[in-house]
Structures are given as C-alpha cells and as structure tokens.
Design a protein around this nucleic acid. Structure first.
Lengths: 271, 271
DNA sequence: CTTCGACTCTCCCCCCGGGGGAGGGTGCAC
DNA sequence: GTGCACCCTCCCCCGGGGGGAGAGTCGAAG
C-alpha cells in the first residue's frame, strides 16, 4: 500500500526531525521499512507513522529511549499498558516533588523568624525490630512503604513511634543504607526482612519538623546550621522518628517528625 | 558566627553532593566563603546553607543554572519572585503538554476504526489580514495569543473563521515561519504587526480535527498517511482553520479545526 | 611532632537526547 | 544529462551531572 517515503518526507508527515529519525533507527526503535544497502538511504512506509508518533509521545513523557524500546517490543497489550503506567506513576511522583520544591522555595524566600527549637540529647541504645536495605533516593519512599507494612505485620505491640536511619550518602550521593524500625521491648524472631537490631547510643541534635515532608529539607538545613554554629559535626546516619505520621492522621499539617542528627564535638577553636 | 566548613561537611548539611557544590562554584552560583589560594580547598559558612538550598530547589524545578544565577543576582524580591513565577508558568505549560501526550498515547494505542474523512480541495487565493513571525515551537502558543488579539482589534468584520499557516520546519526543526490570519473582504491598513496578505491558491488535502488540540498530532499523522497513500507529497506550510475554537466555546470537545496540507501529485509509479 | 588515613584538589571521560555543520555521495525532474 | 535538492556518515557541542585516576592537604591519634 504505502508508497516508499524518503526520510525527509517521513519527517514532514510525523513532525519529527531527520536527525531524530536517524537516532531512533540506530537505537533500534524505528527500523526503516527499507535501507538501500549501497547508498544507505533510509526509506519509510506510511504505515510506520503511528509507531513514530508513539515514540514521540513517550519521549514527551521523558521516557528514556531504552524504556521506549522495551515498551515497543512488548507484544502483550496489557503488559505494555502496565509499562506505560509505571512511567505515568513516575511522572506523578515527579509532580509531587515539584510541588514540594515550590513550597520549600516559598519557605526559603520568606523565612519565618521563628527560632528553631533544637535540643542536644544523649540517646541510649534501643532495641528495635528493623528492616534494612541499600536504596537510591528515588526508591526510598516506595521501599519505606513496603518495609513499614512488613514491620507492622510482625510487631503487634510497638514500644514507641516508628523511625528510620538514613545514611548521609543517601542524600549527598543519592544512594545509601537505610534502616526503618519500630521499637520493641523484646527481640522479635526473624520474619521475612524483619529482624531485631540494637540502635547504638549516640549524642543527637534533635528538632521537630511540623507538617508534611514537603519542606523537611529546609528544617534539615536549619538544624544543620544549628549544628555548625554549636561547633558540632555530623557523626553518622540521621535518625527520623515519626511522632505523628500518615498512619495517625491524614491531615499532613498535623504530622510531627523528629529529626536527630548524631553529632560529636569539634576541638575548640577561635570563633 | 559560623565556623568554617569543609566542602564535605557542607555537603552533608545541605544534602548536596561534593561534585555538585564544585559545579555551583565554577558556575558562579555559590561562591565558597573562602578558598585557600595555595591548596584550592573550598571553605563554606553555615550561613550559606539557605542559599545552597534555594539553588537545589530551583534545580528540582528544572531551572537552568544560568537562570538560577539570574534569580540569585536579582536584588529586588518582587522581581525575583516574578522570575521564579515565569518558571512556574513554564512548568504548567509542560504539565499540559504532558497531559496532551498521555491523551495522544491513549488514542494511538487503542485506535478507533473510524475512517478519517479527507477531502482533496482546490483552494483559491484569499485576501486576509495577517500577522507573521518566525517563532520556536515552545513560543508558538503565546505568540499566537498575542497575534490573534492584535488581529481582533483591527478586523472588525471578519469574512470567515481565523486560521494559521505553519511552516513544516516549525514542527520538524522546532523553529519556523508562522502566519496567523483573519479573512477580510477588503485590504486593511497596516496597523502594528497587522498587514494585508494574499494566501496563494493551493491544492489542499483537508480533514477536520474534532475536540481539543491535545491529540491533534494524531490527526496530522492520519492525514499524512492519507496523503502518502494517495501518491501525494507535501508542498508547503500546513493551513489550520479554526472553524470552532476557544473564542466560540469554552468546551474544548466542541472545537473543530480544519487541517489542510498543501499537496502536489507525485509522478505515477507502481504501487 | 610525626604519621597516616581521610579528605580534597584538578583533570579527563562517560551518560542522555538531541543540534550544528563539514565533506561527500545520490536521486529525480526538467 | 545535468543541476540541485536530498541524504549519508562523522565529529563536536550543549547541560548537569557521575566515575575514577593521580596528586596534594588536613588533622587527630599516638
């Protein structure tokens, strides 16, 4: 049916650039209907227009070319739809991160004079039921949800609010060790990923972040400033304790998150 | 006040990576409080934590480093807020483009068997009041709004629905000549950007896109397929005519956009 | 005060998804 | 049959990082 189209005509019909079509060819996303072996000329077929448009629309959704290829190679429509759905979910997560950034900017650009209440606290060792893993910054939220669900299934009578330990590398390098825990009075048997652990005693600089986690980075910064101003230095993974969280109330404004940064005293110097 | 912080400690307090801090330094975004001239070591101050966070949050909004710099250098808070607002508006435009891509994908992945009604039509030359410019793909929407408003102010009695001519390069290369017009019965005097023009007679392959422009690219593809299947080739800028548009009804489902692609007949060949 | 391990420096190459342009081969329409 | 528009490959560029090499520096323990 379709008459053979040169790359230029095909570009006009699909609203893609010639360069982009060549790139999709070499990436194995859109093989021309025919390639002249002597000249290397690419020839397309009008039937390939929808395929080219699917690629273009997926690219508009910032789907990486490799994932586009995976989607196109998936023969089962349902599986293909779920692959696309994953990316849509990723877009929603990005949207919420964008909203959090906007709210953080608002708080940063018109800062409230309310002084931060920080307490230096010596925390004893603590027996907990825990789940640990090394995760990336982008995965930490979904990982947390799964780990906490598993903990809740095992720990029937928690001895306090749940919490997490987050390696500093998780934030600065985007990947690090994470431990989510629920305090317990007695060791729990190993169940799935859940095991007992003892959080070591530390000296913590503690503050409480009020409200949703959208602007928690700002609170981290304020706590960091306090730590620095008091001639302290960071000495280990940060500890968050979810005094009031999503499990307690759906109203994010009521959440209360304790942030504790393990610190040690620097040798005194002038200043 | 603030004690001097090495780049590593500052990275911990701001949750930025060392590499990123160095990049922000060389980009002139975040000058360390002190740089040791002999060793090159960067030393930061705890007071710079908020500045670092502002940069990080703007980067999360995909603000280019150059624009971040412009924002940081702007002393007037109101002007600064408006710069940030521009980027937020850009994000909203991107969001609507994302939604359009999703809807286009839905239409592409479960196509309706409804055959496209295409008509080959010889169109005579037409006298219009027009505004022209060379614009980029990202600017075309806002440019169109301004141009159409100017046209409306000049043309009191239009002789037909408004339309636009769009260079194919606008779509394939992202930049091209655009002409927006309102048909008139008699030439209009030059007023601002508005001037008279005569659209040349052409042979058009015409179809009508129903509904919002979200999925208009899909209709373009179907029209392109029809053009190719009928041994035609594209011969000039596409013509859109807004039979029913935002000016007529707020219900996007009722919009009707005529798409006319100038074509010429290819020399006959087998197939 | 020395030592040594952790920290930091610069420099170069890599990633992605394109765009610009050079230099040279092809095709089609008149 | 010839000219010109088209197409080819190849290399370099962009932004905003990351990885790692190799060398220099800092500072805390002994």
């Amino acid at each position: 049916m379709g008459r053979v189209l040169t790359i230029g005509r095909f570009a006009q019909l699909t609203h893609l650039s010639i360069r982009t079509l060549r790139r999709y060819h070499e990436a194995g996303l859109l093989e021309p209907a025919h390639v002249d072996p002597s000249s290397g000329y690419r020839y397309y077929d009008a039937g390939q227009i929808p395929a080219a448009q699917v690629i273009a629309r997926l690219r508009e959704l910032d789907v990486p070319l490799a994932d586009v290829r995976r989607i196109l190679l998936e023969p089962d429509p349902a599986a293909r739809a779920s692959l696309v759905g994953e990316h849509l979910q990723r877009l929603e997560e990005q949207l919420s991160r964008t909203q959090a950034a906007v709210r953080s900017l608002q708080r940063l650009l018109r800062p409230e004079p309310a002084a931060l209440a920080v307490e230096l606290r010596r925390v004893p060792a603590r027996l907990v039921a825990a789940v640990e893993a090394t995760v990336t910054h982008t995965d930490v939220l979904s990982w947390y949800a799964g780990a906490m669900a598993e903990l809740d299934a095992v720990v029937t009578r928690p001895a306090g609010p749940p919490g997490g330990l987050y390696d500093n590398a998780l934030f600065t390098e985007g990947r690090g060790r994470v431990l989510v825990h629920v305090p317990v009075d007695a060791p729990v048997p190993v169940t799935g990923r859940v095991h007992s652990a003892e959080l070591p005693a530390v000296e913590l600089a503690v503050t409480v972040h009020e409200g949703s986690h959208d602007t928690i980075e700002v609170t981290y910064g304020e706590l960091g400033r306090w730590v620095s101003d008091h001639a302290l230095a960071v000495a280990g993974p940060v500890r968050e304790t979810y005094l009031t969280g999503p499990r307690d109330t759906a109203e994010a404004e009521r959440w209360r998150t304790e942030i504790g940064w393990p610190v040690f005293r620097l040798t005194p110097r002038s200043g």
